[in-house]
């Protein structure tokens, strides 16, 4: 019985985007983008500012019409059935868009009323997030810290128990602790059967999604599970370290067979052009350049490595 219901839901909650394009004046913000999000999936749009992420969100939440292509959300067409979409999706825009002069509680009640429901009716869905906000429920939204604003915005987007949740850069400008908590919340929402499309400029968050689309300059460069994307990366990356990081970057860039040199936390990620690259040769070169405490070892490929090589 439950199984049947699951199948019915599975048909309803996916997102299909086919050849969507959108230009502002002469600038193509989104260029023939195609992807599908499966029902119940946590799907990430990963890319920097200006990649076209927000435009895609606005089209899917019916706030903007595409120039070309078509898209459906929960089987509803984003143009023809826009009203049905608006009542069945939750949207958390990138810019904080709640009423700054209303308190936490007033904002929640306001959004509940707009969607014809009450805070009590869907409380179970937001309970574990709202508990953290409750001590501040009489505080005006404008006076909340970044992490708290983000939690309130998520509650407001969930208040009408949407089937599909759109989160546009929910963790931008948010500290690592709040970011981690936020992703734990998303995982719990996913377990409740909500399909989630989330965008982020933080590449380390990509690995927390079921599948991701890497996007830059309006074009999707790759779609797959994050683990598959990193596993399929064929180049060998080395972690390199010495006492003088800035000098190391400079000297590695002057090493004749270098392919790419990027700082990665405490190490430099180095890729060589040659298949028969010998770390010993590089070690010797760096010693000649007076580097000390040199470490050269194989690195683990991250999404950010792949992204920078696209």
């Amino acid at each position: 019985m439950n199984f049947d219901i699951a199948i019915v839901i599975a048909i309803e909650m996916n997102i299909k985007v086919q050849n969507i394009s959108k230009s502002y004046n002469k600038i193509k913000a989104v260029d023939a983008v195609t992807f599908e999000v499966n029902s119940g999936e946590l799907f990430g749009l990963i890319g920097p500012d200006g990649a076209g992420k927000t435009t895609i969100f606005r089209i899917l939440t019916t706030l903007l019409m595409p120039d070309e292509g078509n898209a459906t959300v929960a089987e509803y067409d984003v143009v023809a059935d826009y009203k049905a979409i608006r009542s069945s999706v939750g949207y958390m825009p990138g810019k904080f868009s709640l009423y700054q002069d209303l308190t936490v509680e007033e904002n929640l009640e306001f959004f509940a009323t707009i969607f014809g429901t009450t805070l009590a009716e869907n409380y179970a869905l937001i309970a574990d997030i709202y508990i953290q906000l409750e001590p501040f429920k009489d505080r005006r939204a404008g006076a909340l810290s970044g992490g708290m604003k983000q939690k309130l915005a998520l509650c407001c987007a969930l208040i009408h128990a949407p089937k599909v949740l759109f989160l546009d850069e929910p963790t931008t400008g948010v500290d690592p602790v709040s970011r981690k908590e936020f992703w734990q919340m998303l995982k719990r929402l996913q377990l409740k059967g909500i399909t989630i499309l989330v965008s982020t400029p933080y590449m380390d968050e990509a690995s927390l999604c079921d599948r991701i689309a890497l996007i830059q300059k309006g074009k999707i460069l790759k779609i797959d599970a994050p683990q598959v994307i990193t596993a399929n990366y064929e180049k060998l990356i080395y972690d390199i370290q010495s006492k003088n990081t800035h000098g190391l970057i400079h000297d590695l860039k002057n090493y004749s067979s270098h392919y790419s040199v990027y700082a990665f936390g405490e190490f430099i990620h180095y890729i060589d052009k040659n298949v028969d690259f010998k770390p010993e040769d590089l070690q010797q070169y760096l010693e000649e350049k007076n580097h000390s405490d040199i470490i050269i070892k194989k690195a683990e490929t991250t999404i950010e490595d792949v992204f920078m090589d696209l």
């Binding site: 890319g47 920097p48 500012d49 990649a51 931008t172 400008g173 830059q216 990027y262 920078m308």
Partner: peptide, 14 residues
């Protein structure tokens, strides 16, 4: 560097 693409972010640090 908030929201800046990964390559530019590194150029900025240089």
């Amino acid at each position: 560097t908030g929201g800046v693409d990964p390559i530019t972010r590194r150029q900025f640090w240089e």
